[in-house]
Amino acid sequence: MLIENESGALSRVSGLFSARGYNIHALTVAPTEDESLSRLTLVTIGTAHQIEQIVKHLNRLIDVVKVIDLTEGPHIERELMLVKLSATGEFREEFVRLTDIFRGTIVDVTATTYTVQMIGETQKLDAYIAAIDPALILETVRSGAMGIMRGEKCLQI
């Protein structure tokens, strides 16, 4: 969705979700090339009826300029993840191979750790994490999904 790039706009959106008992699975927001607008991608889960209500309530917020449900059509979804792994012994080789399979990049190296950058759909990032012994994962940070429609269609005002 596009929202006014003003203080408080984000809390109106998040407040709506908590007040009406909807769940925010992931949320990412940043200003756009038009300084007055921010682009926000929010992932939530619900029945078709719930999603319809959520969209209606979002549209009611004065600071929300435009909302689309990306899952209604073909779209591209990407998430960025940074993972710090304990990489010693045999795992120094193993993590290079595994990261390569997932087309990730090792962006920082120390004598005992790797920091991996991975971009992809949420599912792919989940799969990468699942492939690693949890004891070796020191830290993860994920952006939450961002989305854009395929083809010529745009979310514009």
Binding site: H49, E52, Q53
Partner: peptide, 11 residues
């Protein structure tokens, strides 16, 4: 007048 009131409780 409010789209969010429609089909909120009863479809």
């Amino acid at each position: 007048i409010d789209p969010a009131s429609i089909s909120k409780n009863v479809v």
